[in-house]
């Protein structure tokens, strides 16, 4: 049904999406916790910065990434001199673009679930001798886990749908940066590729649907034991 090329596009999209979410998980969790519980003057600015990729045109985000990671960009220079690697035109670059674009959604969903944790339980844990880190690990984190899982699935769906920042930043390289949306866009430019567009579009919808169903199942399973009155 699908050609080998089309399978490789799907495989690449999955790899990039999973890498982006995995790399973004600790960062967005830390940001969400700071935004939910922090109290310092720069908080509003940090909040705005986190949300920036949501409102800036993706092509601008891609261009900024190019400036940062390019051969003469600060991060690009550092990666080149320390590790001898470049993320330009590589799938790692596509994962970075996807992670940046997924960040606002992930942080937002995680922040909401952390904010919904009853602070009185955190207080109770503190009176029992738990310091901040232990309170987070044993109370805040487990109680917000369903929301965090949902945030990851949301971030994954956003990652595999990423187009504008990715094509600006790392272009359209078969086997490296040609993800589902980029492949669909490319096929649309070619005469007579309607069938390919249809197949890729169907796969794209199925993947997103699968992600949504997975998040729903996760949310239902989480806390099945303790939320009910089970013994």
């Amino acid at each position: 049904m699908l050609s080998a090329d089309e399978w490789s596009v799907i495989g690449l999209s999955l790899k990039i999406g999973l890498t982006a979410v995995a790399a973004m998980l600790p960062i967005s969790l830390a940001l969400a916790y700071i935004l939910a519980r922090g109290r310092f003057p720069g908080l509003l600015l940090l909040d705005a910065l986190v949300h920036l990729p949501l409102v800036v045109p993706p092509v601008v985000t891609g261009w900024l990434l190019l400036l940062l990671f390019g051969a003469s960009g600060p991060v690009g220079l550092w990666l080149e001199s320390w590790f001898g690697v470049s993320v330009l035109f590589r799938w790692t670059g596509a994962a970075i673009a996807a992670a940046i674009m997924a960040m606002p959604l992930m942080v937002r969903a995680m922040r909401l679930s952390i904010e919904s944790v009853d602070r009185r339980l955190e207080d109770a844990a503190a009176t029992l001798g738990a310091g901040r880190w232990r309170v987070f690990r044993t109370i805040t984190l487990p109680l917000s886990l369903p929301g965090i899982a949902a945030a990851m699935v949301l971030g994954f769906a956003r990652s595999i749908g990423e187009f504008g920042a990715t094509i600006t930043f790392v272009s359209n390289i078969p086997g490296e940066t040609r993800t589902l949306p980029i492949a669909i866009y490319g096929a649309l430019q070619m005469p007579g590729a309607e069938a390919e567009v249809t197949r890729l579009a169907i796969m794209s919808v199925l993947l997103s649907l699968g992600a949504l169903l997975a998040s729903e199942l996760l949310a239902r399973r989480a806390g099945k034991g303790w939320r009910g009155h089970g013994l």
Binding site: R120, L121, A124, P142
Partner: peptide, 13 residues
């Protein structure tokens, strides 16, 4: 401080 709260505050999970 061994605090026994009015609303119990047992950890639900």
């Amino acid at each position: 401080a061994g605090y026994v709260f009015q609303d119990g505050r047992l950890f639900p999970h």
